[in-house]
């Protein structure tokens, strides 16, 4: 069977050239910017770098960024699980329209995502008069930043879970229920353990976006220093003040976050691939297609 297959391989020099061109492209567009962030951040030496990060405004920006992610992620996880449960486990009319609507925030410009909350809650917005009468601030305050972040990270978890749960099928959950498990027992003991890697994957991606969002947050934040400045907005302010070291020091924290994201994502992808392979090995060749049709 091991007939030689030289016919479908490119000549060595072609392979070499194509690889080289691809690597040069990725080197210029990806590797160089990544290196440049850290070189610029450390350009004035390590003490200046640490000073820039110890600045109270930088500290409060980091804290606000973490706070917003801590509020937004659990809400989007709860939504993602609920949406994936309804879509992957049940048949209903308008399902594909619902999936398209869930994807919608990915297609909307971040600036438009911020603008819509200004139109709702800004001083001239639909609820603006009511809010100011009750002395509630949403725009140019933390609630607005949370709302904008919720919007832009909305699809991440659901998008990851829907295809995963569709592929897994509902046999295990049906078995749990017919053995007398309550809905919540089934959720905690069967569903969530089965989707944990996909869930984590969605959370990793959503977190990177939540902590790094700029456009939407910039529109609703008002850039009040020490109050409504997230880390990406802090980067912008310092950069526009020609504080190159400060801007890149703050940017390097976000670049580190990006690196952690990439590493975590790669590990989770590896785990998911292993579990899929195990799942496929445990099923008969055509087993996956035999979902219980109504």
């Amino acid at each position: 069977m091991s007939s030689p297959r030289p016919s479908i391989a490119e000549p060595r020099w072609v392979r070499f050239t194509l690889t080289a061109v691809a690597l040069v492209f990725l080197g210029f567009f990806l590797a160089l910017p990544l290196v440049a962030v850290f070189v610029e951040a450390l350009a004035a030496g390590i003490p200046a770098y640490l000073d820039a990060l110890a600045d109270p405004e930088a500290r409060s920006a980091i804290w606000l960024t973490v706070l917003v992610a801590l509020i937004a992620l659990p809400l989007n996880v709860a939504f993602g699980v609920a949406a994936a449960w309804a879509i992957a486990r049940f048949e209903f009319r308008g399902k594909s329209a619902l999936i398209t609507l869930i994807d919608l925030p990915f297609a909307v410009s971040p600036v438009v995502a911020g603008l819509v909350f200004v139109l709702l809650f800004g001083s001239q917005g639909l609820f603006g008069a009511w809010l100011s009468a009750h002395d509630i601030r949403i725009i140019f305050a933390v609630p607005g930043i949370v709302l904008a972040t919720l919007f832009v990270t909305f699809p991440f978890v659901a998008r990851e879970l829907i295809p995963l749960m569709q592929a897994q099928g509902r046999e295990e959950e049906e078995a749990a229920v017919s053995l007398g498990a309550s809905g919540w027992q089934m959720l905690w003991r069967v569903t969530l353990p089965n989707i944990k890697w996909g869930l984590l994957y969605g959370v990793i991606l959503a977190n990177a976006r939540a902590m790094g969002e700029f456009g939407a947050v910039s529109v609703v934040s008002g850039h009040i220093r020490g109050e409504t400045n997230t880390l990406p907005l802090h980067v912008e302010i310092l950069y526009n003040e020609y504080n190159q070291v400060g801007a890149f020091a703050a940017a390097s924290v976000l670049a580190l976050l990006a690196l952690v994201t990439l590493i975590a994502k790669t590990i989770v992808e590896w785990r998911m691939r292993r579990e899929t392979a195990m799942l496929e090995a445990s099923l008969s060749p055509e087993g996956g297609a035999a979902s219980p049709a109504a």
Partner: peptide, 12 residues
């Protein structure tokens, strides 16, 4: 590394 643009904040 190909996913870097998804992970790196746009302001950075």
């Amino acid at each position: 590394l190909v996913d870097l643009p998804f992970a790196l904040p746009t302001a950075v």
